[in-house]
Amino acid sequence: MLRSVRSRRRAGTLLAALLLALSSLAGPAAPAAAAVTPVSVFGAWHCSNDACLWGTVRGAAEFDSQNHWLINRGDGRPSVNLVVLSFVNPLRLLNQTTDAGNINGVPRGMTQEIVNYFTARGIRVMFSIGGITYTGDWDTALAQNGTLLGQRAAAVATQFGVGIEIDYEQNTGPNLTQLQNFISAYRAVHPYNAAGTDPAARLTIDVAAGDRWLIDINRKASADWLRTDAPVLDFANAMVSARQPSAATAQSNWQEHIDGKSQYSPPVPPLAPAKFTGGLYIAEGSKVRPECTNYGTSVTKALAPYVQTAAPNGAGTTSGMLGFMFWAAERPSTRGIGTAPPNTCEGGVGAGAQALGVPVPLPALRQS
C-alpha cells in the first residue's frame, strides 16, 4: 500500500512537471482584453465661410447648401453630435461691443437660426470664446474683469441655449486667477450638470495636443477643473497640433494627458481618459484629409481602438477617451481648402460616425 501511494505521488509529480514544461512552450498567457468604451463625443469646430469671424448673417438655406453633410451623412443621420461655433472675441464680449461684425459682443453670424439648424437635428451647439487670434484679447479681458466676463458668457449661453468653450491659448503666464473667476461666475449661473440635460451648463476648455505646450493651463485644468471626484468643467479638448499627426504621434500626445508629467516642477497631474477628446484636422491648408473624404484610410480609424480603450493612469476609473473633435467645418482659412462643396465630409466624418455608432443626440457623459 505504501509503495502504491509513493508511486502515485511520483506519477503526479512527473505529470505536474510535464504540464509546466508544456505551458512554458506555449508562451505567456494572453493578456485580458482591454475594456472597450463606445465613443460619446464626435464633433466639429465650425468657422463659417469667413475664416472663423462669423461676421455676417446667413440664411438657413444658403448655410445648408454649404454644410448639409454635418446634418446628413447620406442615410439621413447627422455626421456629428456636437458643433462648436468658433470664435467669440472675449474682449468684445466683455465690452458688449456692437459694430459691423458683432451685436453685444456676439458675432452677427452666430444667430438663433444657425443654432436651431443644428439643434433641430439633435446636434448639441456650443460657442467657443477665444482662439489663437484672440489670445491677447483674453489677457486684456481677464485683467479687466474675469468675473464679469464669465457672467456675460453665461448670459449668452442662456440667450441662445448653447454651451461655452474656453479657448485661451496663452502659453506664457496665463491669468489663471481671473480665469478661475470666469469659471466660478459662469457656474454660479449654470451649475455643473452631470446628466447633460441643460445645454447652457456645458462648459469645456481647450488644452494642448499634449502636455508640452499650454503647460500652466493643462496643469490647472487637470488639477482643479477636470477632476472626476469634484468636476467643475465638463471636459477638455486636446487641440490639433501644428499639422495633421500620424496615428502614433497623436496617440503619444494624448497619452501625455493620461500620464501627466511628474518630472515637471510643479508636475502636471494625470487626466482621466473620460475627461477629454482628441482633435484632428479634416481639412488642412490646401489638403482635404481622409478624415473628410475616406474614413477607411483616416487617422481617425487608426486611432479608434486606442480612443475606445485608453486606460487611466492615476486619474479616473474607466477606460476610453470621450471621442474625437475635428478642425474645422466650412472655411477655417481664407486661403486654404474648407469643407464646403465639393469637399464635403460624408465619406470621412460621416462614415466614421456610422462605423463607430456615434449616438445622436449627445448622451450623458461618463463621470469617472
Rank of each mutant, 00 (worst) to 15 (best):
R3A: 08
R6P: 01
R8Y: 03
R9N: 07
R10D: 15
A11S: 06
L15H: 03
A26R: 08
P31I: 02
A32I: 14
A32V: 13
A34W: 05
A35I: 11
V36K: 10
S40W: 10
W45E: 05
S48M: 04
C52G: 01
R58A: 06
A61M: 11
E62K: 15
D64A: 15
S65F: 00
S79M: 06
S79F: 07
F87V: 11
F87G: 05
D99H: 14
E113A: 07
Y117R: 03
R121S: 12
R121Q: 14
G122T: 01
I132F: 11
G136L: 09
W138S: 11
D139W: 14
T140D: 06
A143T: 14
L148Y: 07
A153Y: 14
G161Y: 09
D167V: 13
P174F: 13
N175H: 12
N181L: 11
I183H: 06
A185H: 09
R187A: 02
V189T: 14
D198Q: 03
A200L: 05
T204F: 07
R212I: 04
R212Q: 09
I217C: 08
S222A: 07
W225V: 09
F235P: 05
N237T: 02
A238G: 02
A238L: 04
A248Q: 12
Q251E: 14
N253C: 04
H257G: 01
D259M: 02
Q263H: 12
Y264T: 08
Y264G: 03
P266Y: 07
P270C: 01
L271W: 05
P273L: 09
G279M: 01
E284N: 13
G285T: 03
S286V: 12
S298A: 03
L303V: 06
V307N: 00
V307Y: 03
A310C: 12
A311I: 00
G314C: 04
A315Y: 00
T317L: 05
T318W: 00
T318E: 06
S319H: 10
M325S: 10
M325G: 03
A329K: 13
S333M: 09
T334S: 12
T334Y: 15
I337Y: 14
P341Y: 12
P341D: 11
C345M: 12
C345N: 13
G348L: 09
V349H: 12
G350S: 13
A353L: 14
L356Y: 01
G357T: 08
V358R: 01
V360S: 11
L362K: 04
A364M: 11
Q367F: 00
